[in-house]
Design a protein around this nucleic acid. Structure first.
Length: 645
DNA sequence: TCCCACACA
DNA sequence: GGTGTGTGGGA
């Protein structure tokens, strides 16, 4: 499956095939029709404070941390305020600047954080608290999910049976203020609703046939910022399905941004493109509060204008190394370097990854991740501290901080708990120590403190402890609690039956089990449960790839009828029973599923994964071995899907 | 498993 | 720069 070729048919056809269209449906990362969005909150911490304080948007505001700025809103930027100037400089540049210090914990006040007028003076007894921003981040994520679930909701087209958006959308929380969304399944659905001509011709023998050309000759891009087409392209050319898909994606993102603004008063910027790398570059192009579309026909010129050090993963040492090796930072110049030449200075893996990435080829998955994997509480000391006593005071605060966040995460209800606690120490050298958190104990603040203290003694015993310039405590290796495992097992009873079902028709009760009438707080927790169940499904044992192996079990192909007389059909491959009118769509789903698996296999061959640190010569050490250890095998990349109702 | 380096916001 | 997150390698 190489680049789509121009048709020589006298009847004008699309550059794209039915196979590529179907690829949209279940996460093929190879299809050129894929639509990925990157959404980025504008000056996030500053907006949080503006919302909290009710500050008008035109008022310049910056978030302060000790004597530095950590966020500057857009109203303050014309004054020359940046994150790299100090408070005095900021006041000089903009006397009316609202300077809000971050919330802090304070020595002797336990886990209670607060916004305090004097925290900037208390760098020696206060510790920064980012909880308010985490809380806002969660609300925004929830709003985004809800908006995605309701987009196009009342537009059922010809299918009156699906009142809700039962489409699975991959949503990756990339940081506290950024998400990636794989809009492909939603776009697919909308394409079929709006262009009935796409519904035909999905039979197996036709899948490499070209699609018909879209019926429109000019797309209405509304208020989107469009990246200019490559020089060899022209706007006079009729749009193809990739352009139409982007336009639909753009509608969805506008809907999502509108919801975030109307419900929570946050503005965000977004990028839309064929993959994560380009979408991310795109979202930064027009800030604040705008969305940018990078069409496939615009990618080459768009990327050519960048330094490759601005591309994800190339911002650090690897980027520096490449710059030194080839004497340029420009993508446009690196394009002239052949793969063979890249290989002379980079290991095989990195070379082929780089070769693809600067040509816009990024097949990385939108990896549905909402669960926290670790929690860290840290403090830098200026000046350094030099005694156990001082260190212990900070351990108290760290323990209180982390405990509070664990409660949010559900330790009290035994939903999740960390298994490991780690103390990092930076003095003349940098060192860290970790120990297991005993599973027998109930986790509370004192337990965390005692464990931290044990670690501190170990670090001190190692010597060279003082002076210490940085200390941090973290918990990690979260495991699901007993009560939650029950929930999973309960689900799996149904899940086993449902395993091979289309994800667009999951059993009702698994959806409604997450309830719609709970307070926000509870509801969020339950949502995480849903995500975890899906991660369980992502376990190789239950993965798509093994699914097709089940065809041999219990098949009774037949049409039967329900009491109400609507004829029913039972699928040969997965035993699902459904109304007969859903048969075609269901067959189509299996077809798409097979294609997705096939695509993934192809992608594994053709798309190098991102480079790793010391990819010394053919290492690839971990290749196959990981399965045996520790029960929790790593989920296959890209098989996790977050379904939300 | 433990510890470290790296990348990013 | 400070405070968090996440990933992966090597011993």
């Amino acid at each position: 499956m190489s680049e789509p070729t121009e048709s020589t048919d006298p009847v004008k056809l699309s550059r794209f095939t039915y196979r590529q269209l179907q690829g949209l449906r279940h996460g093929s990362t190879a299809t050129p029709l894929r639509v990925i969005a990157h959404i980025d909150l504008d000056a996030f911490y500053a907006q949080c404070e503006m919302v909290r304080l009710g500050t008008p948007r035109e008022t310049p505001l910056a978030v302060r941390q000790w004597d530095s700025l950590i966020a500057v809103n857009y109203a303050a930027r014309p004054f020359g305020i940046t994150r790299f100037i100090n408070i005095a400089e900021a006041r000089r540049l903009c006397p009316d600047l609202v300077l809000q210090h971050v919330a802090t914990f304070r020595e002797g006040e336990g886990g209670r954080w607060a916004y305090r007028d004097d925290s900037y003076k208390k760098i020696n007894t206060d510790k920064v608290c980012l909880d308010p921003y985490r809380a806002q981040s969660r609300k925004i994520l929830q709003t985004i999910k809800e908006a995605l679930a309701t987009w196009n909701d009342d537009d059922n087209g010809d299918n009156t049976q699906t009142p809700k958006q039962e489409v699975t959308v991959g949503l990756e929380k990339a940081s506290i203020d950024e998400v990636f969304i794989d809009l492909s399944p939603l776009v697919y659905k909308a394409l079929l609703q709006r262009y009935p001509e796409l519904r035909a011709g999905t039979q197996d023998e036709n899948r490499d046939a070209e699609l018909p050309i879209p019926p429109t000759t000019a797309l209405q891009w509304d208020r989107d910022c469009l990246i200019d087409l490559d020089k060899i392209e022209t706007e006079e050319d009729d749009p193809d399905w990739d352009d139409v898909g982007m336009l639909i994606g753009s509608e969805i993102v506008r809907w999502v941004r509108k919801a975030v603004w109307e419900k929570l008063s946050y503005t965000c910027s977004a990028g839309l493109a064929r993959n994560k790398m380009i979408a991310k570059l795109g979202s930064a192009c027009n800030k604040p509060n705008l969305q940018t579309v990078v069409r496939n026909r615009a990618v080459q010129d768009f990327l050519g204008g960048y330094k490759f050090t601005q591309i994800r993963m190339l911002g650090g040492k690897l980027g520096d190394h490449i710059t030194a090796a080839f004497g340029t930072e420009k993508v446009s110049e690196l394009l002239n370097v052949s793969l063979e030449q890249l290989r002379t200075r980079l290991d095989e893996h990195t070379a082929s990854w780089l070769y693809g990435i600067i040509r816009g080829d990024d097949r990385s998955e939108v990896n549905p991740r909402t669960q926290i994997k670790s929690m860290l509480s840290a403090k830098s000391f200026r000046p350094s501290i030099s005694s156990i006593d001082q260190a212990e005071k900070w351990l108290r605060i760290f323990a209180a901080d982390i405990y509070g966040r664990l409660v949010e995460e559900g330790v009290l209800e035994n939903r999740r708990r960390p298994r490991v606690i780690t103390l990092h120490h930076r003095g003349s050298q940098s060192r860290s120590r970790q120990i297991p958190i005993p599973g027998s104990n109930v986790i509370n603040e004192d337990l965390l403190y005692d464990l931290a203290n044990t670690l501190l003694r170990q670090v001190v015993a190692d010597g060279q402890t003082w002076p210490c310039s940085n200390l941090s405590l973290s918990v990690s290796s979260f495991e699901d609690g007993v009560s939650n495992n029950k929930a999973i097992e309960g689900f799996l009873v149904r899940g086993d039956q449902a395993k091979a079902l289309t994800r667009s028709s999951r059993p009702r009760d698994t959806d409604t089990a997450q309830g719609g009438h709970l307070p926000n707080d509870k509801r969020r927790k339950l949502d995480s449960d849903g995500a975890r169940i899906d991660q369980f499904f992502a376990n190789p044992v239950h993965s798509e790839d093994t699914e097709t192996g089940e065809q041999g079990t219990s098949q009774q192909p037949e049409m039967d009828a329900e009491p109400n007389g609507i004829p029913r059909f039972t699928c040969l491959r997965c035993s699902k029973s459904m109304p007969e009118y859903e048969k075609e769509e269901h067959d189509d789903w299996h077809f798409a599923k097979d294609l997705a698996i096939q695509d993934r296999e192809e992608a594994k061959v053709s798309q190098p994964t991102p480079p790793t640190k010391s990819s010394t010569r053919g290492a690839t050490a971990r290749g196959r071995g990981g399965r045996g250890g520790g029960g929790r095998s790593k989920t296959e990349k890209g098989q996790m899907r977050l379904a939300f109702q």
